[in-house]
Design a protein around this nucleic acid. Sequence first.
DNA 1: AATCTATTTTAGCCTAGGTTAACTTATAGA
DNA 2: TCTATAAGTTAACCTAGGCTAAAATAGATT
Lengths: 173, 173
Amino acid sequence: MLLRYEEIGYIGAMTNSPNDVTPDRLCKADALPPSDQHAQQYAAVRNAHETELLEDYVELIAHMLKHQGEARSTDIAARMGVSQATVSKTVARLKSLGLVSSKPYRSLFLTEKGEAMAAMAHERHAIVLQFLRALGVSDRTARIDAEGMEHHVSQETLDVMQRFAREQERRDA
Amino acid sequence: MLLRYEEIGYIGAMTNSPNDVTPDRLCKADALPPSDQHAQQYAAVRNAHETELLEDYVELIAHMLKHQGEARSTDIAARMGVSQATVSKTVARLKSLGLVSSKPYRSLFLTEKGEAMAAMAHERHAIVLQFLRALGVSDRTARIDAEGMEHHVSQETLDVMQRFAREQERRDA
DNA sequence: AATCTATTTTAGCCTAGGTTAACTTATAGA
DNA sequence: TCTATAAGTTAACCTAGGCTAAAATAGATT
């Protein structure tokens, strides 16, 4: 399925012969978007990186609050595979951002803002995970990949993934 | 499609009644993997983060060498949407890692190692992008998401994606 | 009540990746 | 050839996210 230029969208007006075939066409299909759009793509990735860790934390904290009743730094550290000191520092950042609240030396709670973020992160995560499994990826791999992918999936793609997973589910039933 | 515990794999031996239905089952399906496995998942993500930027750079440099004949810092800076100073520093790192070679104040080249990395990154990127388009995601969104996702997709998932994209292509033809 | 242990925080260190501002080098044109 | 401008580098700074080691606190036990 070779894309037409019009479908690619960013190529803009075709200047040279629109009917010639492979070599030129392959070259163009391999072309990068214009600089400014490309820069926006990278910026989007950098942007995602900034919130990734925060989302992982609040998602995990929410889960712990729900399933264990409390969220303790030690447990977070163990689950994240980092030192307690790292958790302490990151939690300080979460607090300064108004996502987490706690009294010193006490376990953690989410603010409303934190809960909202956790809910969103959890939903995304779940959709991506279900999607990967529906695609036929093994559970173990799906979990690993979902963890990394979830922060880089736009709403549009998420919708497509959800639809796909539902279709697949229906087919399985 | 509710997963059986056995399919999930990490749950291990079921202790309590294996035939009871929704509430317990839903709860378990929502459960996290055991701490050590979970920690490995996060570690995989952190690991990916370390090479992400390097991969993006060599991929971009390879593209420029191929299509413009040379790779200049200014162009990289423009495409990445960062300052030249940042490029300079990152390139220094790429050089120290033996991925890029250049003489001071001259444009850049890839070492063999750098080319190998670039080729891999490019292939992954292309597969993810084609997959997203085959799924039905718009080109613009597919590009953005592919940029972020490519570094977090395992070989297993990549294979599945490639197969899916080919199927879809066949169906379109 | 005193103390021991587990947990949390703090301090000091490191690397990566970003910035601006100032400096150096390459190169094209008068 | 000289010089203006474009391109690349360096210095000094910042934040995030890791680490270890040491200090502080909470809670349980005797």
